[in-house]
Write a protein that binds this DNA or RNA. Structure first.
Lengths: 208, 208
DNA sequence: GTAATAATCACTCAAATGAGTGATAGGCTA
DNA sequence: TAGCCTATCACTCATTTGAGTGATTATTAC
């Protein structure tokens, strides 16, 4: 049985050539193609495709909501983003929404077949630049954007683990009030008003 | 000028066949091969290779420290992990340490050439399973491992943003004491003792 | 129909925290 | 040398929070 594919892509010409290309191989069949993903849930429910190719920029709902909808209604359908965008913002939104692959439109069309095979085999096809961005995102540590001193960093590190002031003081061999003094400066520098906000900010921005 | 490569791999036989394989193509040259990465910094400093292939399990320092050392002394050298391990623990440690690729040893040797090209072109070669794990790591939400109720989740979500109890109460239109009541149950379920720990745990384990 | 759970709210008390103010000592720099 | 920053510590005061206890209502499960 051929691999069933659904396309969401608002450029009619591109969508039709993609369908034509994929259908040209008997191992693949495009069972549906749409110029928007507003009804993605219903469509996926009905067609139950193996793979979805999803554009991002479409009238109505974006492909980002699109992925989420597809994944929510049928988690087994593999979704490969197919877009011109390579900004971090949209990229990571798609990944968080559950995309299983991310190809740039400059990908040679022949590579699409590989990508589909890859995603069906439990892989995650990505254009090289995208893969690099994804890996880089693990190399945390925004370098000290807020000009924390060494000692302040020590304190923040322990705070972020959920320690109380008393424990931090103990750990760093300093007086209780010294820790509070550092904390006040940290809050100032991070523009927050309390430890909880500081922890949230530090973890979200990978300051530690 | 051929691509210069350094190998860190403690299995002598494997290391030698890798060197032989890579050297067999005039576009590549193995300028050094070592059975441990204890002196990685000095070696990289001296040889300044384009690419490093790094095993993880080696006597002395692990390949995880290895990547860190290489990247610290010469960020421009691309490091590709080459290992049998595919557990999340080591994988993400390597990525955080700065690895630019991650191949499993079951990778067909011929694919190594592609991978090296890919990493030199700014990509991030990964075995399919690895790429999938990496993408999956973005799909947060460990599903409610701690059996939080809907309302508790609401509260935790706001707490994690650094909000005070008062603000949370306001936001969710409930009494101050109701929020505290929910928080107590949340702390119980998460096995923590205070809001700061809860935030740290929630963010680290992507509970929200 | 009763037991269990979730969601709501109230009250107390002690501990933790944030804010404000100020002080001392060491190091660096202009 | 004077000025500035960092790290250290102290004290006060009001607010926030954690902990303990208890109660009501609605919904779900058995």
């Amino acid at each position: 049985m051929p691999v069933s594919i659904v396309l969401f892509e608002d450029n009619d010409r591109l969508r039709e050539s993609l369908a034509y290309l994929l259908n040209s191989d008997p191992n693949y069949t495009v069972t549906g193609d749409y110029n928007n993903c507003n009804q993605a849930a219903e469509i996926i429910e009905e067609l139950a495709p193996d793979v979805v190719l999803m554009d991002i920029d479409m009238p109505g709902k974006t492909g980002i909501s699109g992925v989420a909808m597809v994944k929510q209604t049928r988690p087994d359908t593999a979704v490969i983003m197919y877009t011109v965008f390579e900004d971090d913002e949209r990229l990571f939104q798609c990944l968080c929404a559950g995309a299983n692959g991310y190809l740039l439109k400059k990908t040679p069309p022949a590579r699409l077949f590989d990508a589909i095979q890859e995603v069906l085999n439990g892989g995650a096809p990505m254009s090289p630049n995208i893969a690099r961005k994804v890996l880089n995102s693990f190399q945390q540590k925004t370098d000290n954007l807020y000009n924390l001193t060494d000692r302040e960093t020590d304190v923040l590190q322990l705070l972020v683990k959920g320690n109380s002031i008393k424990v931090i003081a103990d750990e760093l061999n300093m007086a209780f009030d010294t820790v509070r003094s550092h904390l006040k400066k940290i809050y100032l520098k991070l523009h927050v008003n309390c430890g909880k906000e500081a922890i949230a900010k530090a973890l979200n921005e990978k300051l530690i």
